[in-house]
Design a protein around this nucleic acid. Sequence first.
DNA 1: AATAAATCAATCATGTTGATTAATACCGGA
DNA 2: TCCGGTATTAATCAACATGATTGATTTATT
Lengths: 373, 373
Amino acid sequence: MASDSANDSPARDLSRNERLILSLIRRHGPLARAALAQRTGLSAQAITNLTRKLISEGFLDPGKVVRGKVGQPSTPLALAPDGAWFLGLKLGRRLIELALVDFTGSVRMHRQEVCPFAHPDRVISFARQGIDTLAASLPAASRMRITGLGIAAPFRLWDWGDEMAPWRGRDLQAELARDLPFPVFLENDASTACAAELVFGRAALPADFLHLYIAHFAGGGVVLDGRLRLGPRRNAGALGSLPMPDGRQLLELASVATLEARLGHPLPPDDAGWEVPDAIEAEWADEAGRALAFAAMSATALLDLSLVVLDGAVPAATRARLAEATRRALAAMPAAGIDRPRIVEGSLGRSARMLGAAALPLSHFFQPDGKLG
Amino acid sequence: MASDSANDSPARDLSRNERLILSLIRRHGPLARAALAQRTGLSAQAITNLTRKLISEGFLDPGKVVRGKVGQPSTPLALAPDGAWFLGLKLGRRLIELALVDFTGSVRMHRQEVCPFAHPDRVISFARQGIDTLAASLPAASRMRITGLGIAAPFRLWDWGDEMAPWRGRDLQAELARDLPFPVFLENDASTACAAELVFGRAALPADFLHLYIAHFAGGGVVLDGRLRLGPRRNAGALGSLPMPDGRQLLELASVATLEARLGHPLPPDDAGWEVPDAIEAEWADEAGRALAFAAMSATALLDLSLVVLDGAVPAATRARLAEATRRALAAMPAAGIDRPRIVEGSLGRSARMLGAAALPLSHFFQPDGKLG
DNA sequence: AATAAATCAATCATGTTGATTAATACCGGA
DNA sequence: TCCGGTATTAATCAACATGATTGATTTATT
């Protein structure tokens, strides 16, 4: 994940326990020093020292003193919104998006471009120009605190047809890193969707789960011990390549591409104008749900999971229908020796991949192990 | 994994870096202090201090000084064979085994009992008596250094038929721990087989792989980042429950039980007297190989693996045939988007589960994270 | 003389513990 | 009902412990 240039960061490297404090506050919301001591297992004194530094360096804001309880009032510490800034670039076939995200995970600025097909030169100029504009709009003090750019891109773009052939041999990460003053990270877009759920997601998730993301293709993420496993070649969660009972692979059954094939025409890259006849969507959901249930059971047997999070670049109603179809299919599968996992919907939908892209530099500099999650 | 009584160990807890040093020497053989400094990333001074303590406490032996190279001669440090002792109890349907294993992983004593079916009371008395006898045969100094007992047992024994019903409600770990002066650990036998390969195995294994173990049932282990993942409910690698293309589960296709079913009679618990007509074994290997190949591809897509280790409680020739059948089946599977994993045979065979049982206390006290691997 | 292994001595980073201060709620007695 | 003592909790101060580092030094060899 880390680019080779990942060392030229503006801020000093935070220690493990400083990162731990930040990630606890990120997950649980503002916490008092005493609460941090309890959750980290560190002494109150250590927390005092660490938070003093984090506050003075602008990563934490002391909130309003909380009175009304027995004992000395506590001061909750919150993430300072402009403690650090992150850029997220999401690359799709027809839609390119760029976002500037603050330390709390809020998208503070956003631009996008729709094009018939994304050519590398076009993506790069869109990114360069967009980054310049977004950065320029920040006050100088904050501009200095942009810590990195994350890119969410499908792997093997050039396999998507002749239009995408120009991508072969291109290294978007390196080309953009060359003239940016901060490191650039790149991951598979389904991985970043999962990362977003982990880092910014609203729901209280268990430490181990499988994340399924249904976009033009289907992809996934495997979370173990609270961390996203990318695999030695960053190809973990290649759900699309999962073998299916009928001898095909999952990507041939469960993706927006298969829905478009049933429909006979492409669907728009946003909810507006997403119109699919009910019968067609229902049939598609049925077939896709069976495939996803099969994937869910495979992962459960292999990794002892109990939860599957299902999300995608589809309208909420479609996602709900797919989740329901998956639950039905799951109930029909044999499960001797294991428990069927629970299926829940993700909380981020279409924006998951872009948010996850921004989460790449965030994780590198601010998560406890420099890893996702 | 850790029993509740896992704290009453004879020796003090070793620090993380002490454990790291021991595990490096366990994996690579005797190493000089300079080599340890390089591999751990610690300073030479730190290594001097840490190894001094490890030697004085009897965990490391300084070997013969190595001369003949430029510079001051180096002294390789080796594991002291009687630095610690471990007991491994392997529980099967018809064969119960107990081993006393030294710090280097050598089985120093071994006893076993064959019985029509393993009744819990019988297992407990065999274990108690065996442990007493083995411990008594050690000199007092070494007896003090027995650090724990590991048990390798199939999960859900009581589902194996009426004979095994007495196991329901029994807690072997707790019952044995009650009157032993060291902690007791228990894991699924397929997990321990994987652990043995990881801790004691001869081959240089990558950090991520899938381990398949074919015994009466089929089980597995998932190794990520060099560590065995047991899952939140210790049920990871439940290969047998993996859904298969035909709607069945893997355990119905690939196990010694399915071979016995084809054969019409049970096979012996050791290589002697293992006689299977060639045609029957070939057909079985074909079917099982297809199932294992399916499992291998599922795991590869999910976790980005590139190696599958295949082992089992079968003769080497049978294992080789099964591996070959798996490779053939693998080649026939669709693999768009991923690479097919390599299939290699394990190095421990029938003894894997018992050795892995002994590896449980070893890992708890001497592996860097107290985890397997 | 160059090289490599290992150690010595001093120091630093990062945590701990125990005593101390601060601000509040709770509660019994006037 | 008010009032002051006491328990409670948050946070800090000061001293210290642990486990590492660095730079100089010693040793044995080619």
